[in-house]
Amino acid sequence: MSWAQLFFYVFAILAVIMALMVITRRKAVHSAIFLILAFICFAATYVIMNAELLAAIQVLVYAGGVVGLIIFVIMLVGAEEGEVKQTHGQWLIAGFVALLLVVEVAFILLGTLFRPTGALASKMVPAGGNTEALGVVLYTKYLFPFEVASVLLLAAMIGAIVLAKYKLKR
């Protein structure tokens, strides 16, 4: 059990605990903080799976930006007026549906555990590290989806402004 594997399992379990906390907390702010911790654990697992650039992006964009935005809006909207006790019925139904999915997919995956393709996460460290390799691929083969992604962000911005801006001047 090399160190990397040990770290991977530690962070994986930590992330699972954090994720569970996210959906069980009563107050929205608490679950947001646990979400940040979960994202940081995810970033750690990315590093172990030799995707350093993505780990950095993950921490910056997700943990910093998205959750920051969510916390900001939680404060603005003041979602703290306490949640009415949700009926257990709903919890059970959701749990049951999820359980069904887990069992079904796990069963299939267990069947394929011993796939001939050798499910080893190979130690593939490309020359110049992950960032450069990723940059090369992103700007040559995938330039076009990159452009479309920029259109997407523009649309998201306009959509957000239209929906939320206080006084839309004529």
């Binding site: 479309v148 998201a156 957000a160 929906l163």
Partner: peptide, 22 residues
């Protein structure tokens, strides 16, 4: 990948349009 990005461009603009008359 291109299909997914196209789908999301469509979906996000439709989210905003659906809530347009706020």
């Amino acid at each position: 990948v291109l299909f997914f990005v196209g789908l999301e461009v469509l979906s996000i603009s439709l989210y905003a349009l659906a809530g347009f008359v706020r």
